[in-house]
């Protein structure tokens, strides 16, 4: 928080200096900033309310309970859904993921889960929808899901091969 305020102070002072040296750019800078600020304020409260609701109503152990057991397509689907629930930043997901791995969840599902968690959080998608449009958002969403699944399968293969190799060497 303090770092953010310092950053804000730094950006503001740089801007004030720049705008006093180049007064002819003042109009453009202020109009653009103001437009984006208004757009942000139109959606930010709603996004925050959604995040708050999810934090309170979706308990973390729900994720652990459902992701550990399921395998196959159902497992992949659950991994994606669980990942998109906005329950916190990525570093919160790592301990959950490692606990699930120890419990015997598939590596591919865990990778999909982490990708979904980082990339396609529900409230974030709404911000993307507002600023980049429905086509951009849907295309990125679909591509991310497809490639996250492929990456999950690839990592699972590579890891199991490495393990086999290591066990035969040592």
């Amino acid at each position: 928080m303090r770092r953010d305020l310092m950053l804000l102070g730094f950006v503001s002072s740089v801007t004030i200096v720049l705008l006093s040296i180049f007064p002819e750019n003042r109009g453009d800078v202020i109009t653009s900033s103001w437009e984006f600020f208004v757009e942000m304020m139109l959606i930010l409260p709603a996004v925050m309310v959604l995040m708050g609701l999810f934090t309170v109503f979706v308990p973390k152990d729900l994720v652990v309970k459902h992701l550990g057991r399921e395998s196959g397509l159902r497992g992949v689907f659950i991994a994606i859904v669980m990942g998109t629930l906005p329950t916190g930043p990525l570093y919160i997901a790592f301990p959950i993921a490692s606990a699930l791995l120890k419990k015997g969840a598939r590596v591919s599902n865990i990778v999909v889960f982490l990708s979904a968690w980082s990339c396609i959080k529900l409230p974030q998608e709404l911000v993307e929808l507002e600023f980049l449009g429905v086509r951009f958002m849907l295309a990125r969403l679909a591509l991310t899901v497809v490639f996250a699944i492929l990456m999950g399968l690839a990592i699972e293969q590579i890891l199991s091969r490495w393990e086999r190799y290591e066990c035969c060497e040592g």
């Binding site: 928080m1 953010d4 305020l5 950053l7 804000l8 950006v11 503001s12 740089v14 801007t15 720049l18 453009d28 800078v29 202020i30 109009t31 653009s32 900033s33 103001w34 984006f36 600020f37 942000m40 930010l44 409260p45 925050m48 309310v49 995040m51 708050g52 609701l53 934090t55 309170v56």
Partner: peptide
Amino acid sequence: VIALNSFFRILPMVIATVILIGL
């Protein structure tokens, strides 16, 4: 309450970004 807190926590970053976009 969580929503309100996170809103004010992210606000400085939002304003800084908006200024940066203007620049």
